[in-house]
Amino acid sequence: MTVQVEGLDFPDLVVASVQMEPHVGHTAANVARSVQLIEEAAAQGASIVVLPELANSGYVFASRAEAFALAEPVPDGPSTQAWADAARRCNVHVVAGIAEREDDRLYNAAAVLGPRGWLGTYRKLHLWGDEHLFFEPGNKGLPVFHTELGRLGVVICYDGWFPEAYRLLAMQGVDIVCMPTNWVPMPQQPADRPAMATTLAMASAHSNGMNIVCANRTGTERGQPFVGQSLIVGAQGWPLAGPASHDGEEILLARINLKASRQARHLNAFNDVLRDRRDDIYDPMLGTGWPLPRH
């Protein structure tokens, strides 16, 4: 489908969520498998491919020394270089979770790459569980990656529990939020109910009028199970693809139209989820001081 507006075409984008099972310490094999899946997604028409959190290193580190040994600089490390090569060859944008090393500091990060190379890095703001033993909290805020496909934002896993992150991205005009994630079971989660994270993603997409591409991992690593259920949510909050299975590798694909996505913020003739904010009561940018974009 193509939407025609004032002589301009707004073709659909195909986005891909890659659900895979990295293995801690097997970086070369993890990256090789992720490149295969990027190639498969691109062959099916994807323009944006999202990989899981810590897709290169695995997640459950035994010690800080192990985490440090498995982390790499970005963008000059071998994992980022391999993903950059895949993005160039396949003419896609890739958002990939990586254990990043900067001097003596480690970050749970995501590298953002396009056909012309590295676009930037997002560092996870909200650390979960034992991540506090290995990583520093992110120090790059919530950057927007301006691409020919639209405005991309990134959050990682537990960031999705904080509505402020999504709202700040929406206020900067982000069209698609890419979420590398390693979702784990939540306390008292009923076995017959979808993961809490999928509900949060749907609610956040709806309340901000933007698309969210969630790429989770599967498997059990050093006793820690992961729940799968990767998901692509449209700007009106309804799933476009997924949830994926609990335990298998999958590529989810969905079509997104940027014009329709931006219009999704208009719920009816009276209500717009961003315009209706009571910024006479609270700071529209939550105290960050970032300038509002022109949409």
Rank of each mutant, 00 (worst) to 15 (best):
M196Q: 11
P180K: 04
A260V: 04
M202Y: 03
G234V: 05
L168I: 08
A241Y: 07
R151D: 00
R255V: 04
A201W: 09
L258R: 03
G237R: 06
D247V: 07
G160H: 13
G242H: 01
P143S: 07
T199F: 15
A170G: 12
N211K: 04
F226I: 02
R265T: 06
Y158K: 14
G160L: 11
C178S: 10
C214K: 09
G237N: 05
G234N: 08
Y158Q: 14
L200C: 10
N257F: 03
S230P: 06
L200I: 09
S230N: 04
W161R: 14
V177P: 10
P163E: 06
N211V: 14
Q188S: 12
P225E: 06
P163C: 02
V233F: 02
P239Q: 06
R265D: 03
M186K: 01
V174I: 03
T218S: 06
E164M: 12
K259G: 02
L169E: 09
Q229P: 02
A191R: 14
Y166F: 15
A264K: 04
Q263A: 14
D175Q: 01
I212Q: 11
G237P: 03
I256Q: 00
E148P: 02
G160W: 13
T199L: 15
A264Q: 07
L252E: 05
A170H: 08
